[in-house]
Design a protein around this nucleic acid. Structure first.
Length: 200
DNA sequence: ATATCGATTATCT
DNA sequence: GATAATCGATATG
């Protein structure tokens, strides 16, 4: 009998980069009014204190204020006039650190993800396009700033949670982060080696 | 297969 | 006014 359980806030690694690695292989689950979607976390990135690539680098603003919430809160931002991206805050109240969820392997609610993405699932290539990338997975899961920014992943009533379903990843790989211009050389992107749903 | 570019808007300079 | 933690479309080899 395999154990499936929600993660507890107290078990999260204290360090942002360690948390990015820790979350690989866990499951993100969203209980939306339309139904449940869940997926295996296969790609993350860490954004740390003093990081020139981090949204909090120049201090707290209206946009990034949920980065400063106690670890375990959702930071959802809107980018390029098109896309939402989902993060989890990592550090004690008042200190900004985040892990960006970049890609998921769909597990539950695949048909709803396709509807949300306005896509078909005729083959594995198109299946990959559901959740491979931060904007795509947010859209597939119905995550928006209006609905989800500031949510606590670890509140007992939260509809956005992180689960350990007992799955263990064979090999976790670290690479430089994607899509940034500053501090682009640091290897703070984590992914499941060889997984189809990793972006790029 | 890789390269380049336009979309579209909140946010900050 | 410029930029952005992206995506999808188009062009070219």
């Amino acid at each position: 009998m395999r154990t499936v359980r929600r993660l507890r806030r107290s078990e999260l690694p204290a360090d942002t980069v360690a948390l990015a690695r820790y979350l690989i292989g866990k499951t993100l689950s969203h209980d939306a009014p339309e139904g449940r979607t869940s997926g295996r976390i296969v790609e993350t990135e860490a954004y740390v204190v003093g990081d020139a690539a981090a949204h909090a680098f120049r201090g707290q603003t209206a946009r990034n204020r949920s980065l400063f919430l106690r670890r375990g809160h959702a930071y959802v931002y809107f980018i390029y006039g098109n896309h939402y991206c989902l993060n989890v805050s990592c550090l004690p109240d008042g200190t900004p650190g985040a892990v960006l969820f970049r890609a998921l392997e769909p597990l539950v609610g695949i048909e709803r993800m396709a509807v949300a993405r306005g896509a078909l699932i005729a083959n594995s290539k198109q299946l990959k396009l559901l959740t491979s990338g931060p904007g795509r997975m947010a859209q597939a899961f119905g995550v928006t700033r209006e609905r989800d920014n500031g949510k606590d992943f670890f509140d007992t009533k939260s509809d956005l949670i992180i689960v350990d379903d007992g799955h263990r990843v064979r090999k976790i790989e670290a690479t430089p982060r994607i899509g940034i211009t500053k501090a682009a050389d640091l290897p703070w992107r984590y992914l499941v080696h060889g997984n189809l749903f990793v972006s790029r």
